[in-house]
């Protein structure tokens, strides 16, 4: 398909009187990576939540995987992988139970689901820690599980908010295998560390406080 994975023009989002995003625009092809940089309060997380269809834009044009947001947001469910500040894991269930739950929400069950979960757990080096309650895991271990959860359903668009947070060097390396650049998915990566992801980025979007894009 020639269509862009994400096309945004004049995007704006207000929270009551406060403006979080103001006139953001970019176009991202499939298989490419967009790096979003900016200080705290620049609307980076807001941008990701809008692209994930969790938040309605207040104005502007947003198309994700060919679907208009918010009008056609329902067509996107199950095609996006979101890795945010919150791991989106239940503390009282084990890692494997959490992944099983998410697999079932995405219509994956039985043998194929178990195989996929085992494959992902092995990929992040968590096979042995998958039976303990999430509440008992360290932040880094939780982030590894969250990465598994994010890619479980083989999403076409990855939305990654500080994907490296809490990960050690080994963890980052393992994570790259699942959420690194790839042909099969487009990526929007949010970070306030310009060094880390610049090498793998095809485009960079810089936001300043108040959510305005910085003129290049």
């Amino acid at each position: 398909m020639s269509e862009a994975a994400v096309a945004v023009a004049g995007l704006r989002r207000d929270y009551g009187e406060r403006t979080a995003l103001d006139g953001v625009g970019f176009e991202l092809a499939r298989g490419e990576t967009l790096l979003v940089l900016g200080p705290n309060g620049a609307g980076k997380t807001t941008l990701l939540r809008i692209l994930a269809t969790l938040l309605r834009p207040s104005g502007g044009e947003v198309r994700v995987l060919g679907c208009r947001i918010p009008g056609e947001a329902w067509k996107l469910r199950g095609r996006i992988g979101l890795l945010g500040h919150e791991p989106l894991l239940y503390r009282d269930l084990s890692g494997r139970e959490n992944l099983r739950f998410h697999a079932r929400l995405h219509g994956l069950r039985g043998e194929p689901a178990e195989a996929r979960i085992a494959e992902l757990l092995a990929a992040v080096g968590m096979e042995r820690r998958a039976e303990g309650r999430v509440a008992e895991l360290s932040a880094g271990m939780r982030q590894r599980l969250a990465i598994c959860r994010c890619v479980l359903h083989e999403p076409e668009l990855l939305l990654l908010d500080e994907p490296d947070s809490n990960l050690d060097a080994g963890g980052r390396e393992l994570a790259r295998g699942l959420i690194g650049p790839g042909e099969s998915h487009a990526r929007v990566v949010v970070s306030h560390d310009p060094e880390r992801f610049e090498p793998e980025a095809d485009q960079v979007l810089r936001l300043e406080a108040g959510g305005k894009p910085v003129a290049a």
Binding site: T53, R77, G78, E86, L88, H102, L105, H106, G107
Partner: peptide, 17 residues
């Protein structure tokens, strides 16, 4: 409470259900 504090609302809204 668990959906709110542990992100279940988001996870469920992202899923095709």
């Amino acid at each position: 409470v668990a959906e709110r504090e542990e992100g279940g609302f988001d996870a469920i809204r992202l899923a095709p259900i």
